[in-house]
């Protein structure tokens, strides 16, 4: 009972701290954490649920406008100055200029064409970090009313429907979709998002794959290392992240930041 109470207090603390940091409209939402059964088969958990520590997550993905502020404050992350080892040539290519957005990058749209290094640097600059895969998956398991909606066919279908639309049209603004049970928006249906540990998802994350890192890239192996084999919605996000390197950027990949409990 005491432990639970302490957990609650910490949770309230980070949520409140986050709210203060972001001014009137809190930029972060506190998530209580707890036991969570990931769809991936991590060697650490051996079929047991993972423990997610309390953390705070941004309500919405980082926008072009927010990222522009960052680039202006840290000009080493301008697309014309960033070293190519940290960002591929297409980094922020949709911006009109290295320090201006233009017609193809509205301030309210989620920022895309960002590398993992750039996303990581952004979060560090505001005293935050990228969420881990487990944190992201935990937050994204919720729908508008349930914290874990993953068994709901409607939840899965909605996600799959977004996956099967090509990204040839302009992105909607961030924050248009209804908040989920935690109050987080746009985890699905807007952009892919970097996670802190994306590069370990397929290799170090699964002991059996360590000798053969390519394995997950086939259909069969991909299915084998998923604990929840019909959770295609999660599987496809993992497949997407695993196809990338940290300097890569794509037309529909953005990010949001997280903060640990103090």
């Amino acid at each position: 009972m005491r432990a639970a109470l302490a957990g609650c207090l910490v949770f309230a603390c980070i949520a409140a701290g986050a709210a203060i940091a972001a001014g009137a409209a809190p930029r972060y939402v506190g998530l209580p954490g707890g036991e969570f059964r990931t769809a991936l088969r991590y060697e650490d958990y051996k079929g047991k649920p993972a423990r997610v520590a309390p953390f705070a997550l941004m309500r919405t993905p980082v926008t072009n406008g927010q990222f522009l502020e960052f680039v202006r404050a840290h000009p080493e992350w301008r697309r014309d100055r960033v070293p190519q080892v940290f960002a591929e040539p297409r980094y922020l290519q949709h911006w009109a200029a290295p320090d201006a957005l233009g017609a193809d990058a509205k301030p309210d749209q989620p920022v895309t064409w960002v590398s993992w290094f750039a996303a990581d640097a952004y979060c560090r600059s505001i005293d935050a970090r990228l969420p881990t895969w487990i944190e992201w998956e935990y937050a994204a398991a919720a729908d508008e009313t349930h914290r874990d909606a993953r068994k709901d066919p409607a939840w899965r279908e909605r996600i799959l429907a977004w996956y099967s639309r090509p990204s040839s049209q302009a992105l909607p603004r961030a924050g248009l979709q209804a908040p989920n049970a935690y109050g987080v928006q746009d985890l699905h249906g807007l952009v892919w998002e970097w996670t802190d540990d994306f590069s370990s998802l397929l290799v170090a994350g699964d002991n059996r794959d360590q000798g053969d890192p390519d394995k997950k890239q086939f259909c069969g192996a991909g299915a084998l290392s998923m604990d929840d084999r019909d959770n295609y919605a999660v599987l496809m996000r993992v497949a997407m992240l695993s196809s990338l390197e940290a300097r890569d950027a794509t037309t529909n990949l953005g990010f949001r930041c997280a903060r640990s409990a103090p």
Partner: peptide, 12 residues
């Protein structure tokens, strides 16, 4: 295509 989930890639 053999990217997971392969069935969906083929079905598309």
């Amino acid at each position: 295509c053999a990217t997971a989930p392969v069935g969906m890639h083929v079905a598309n």
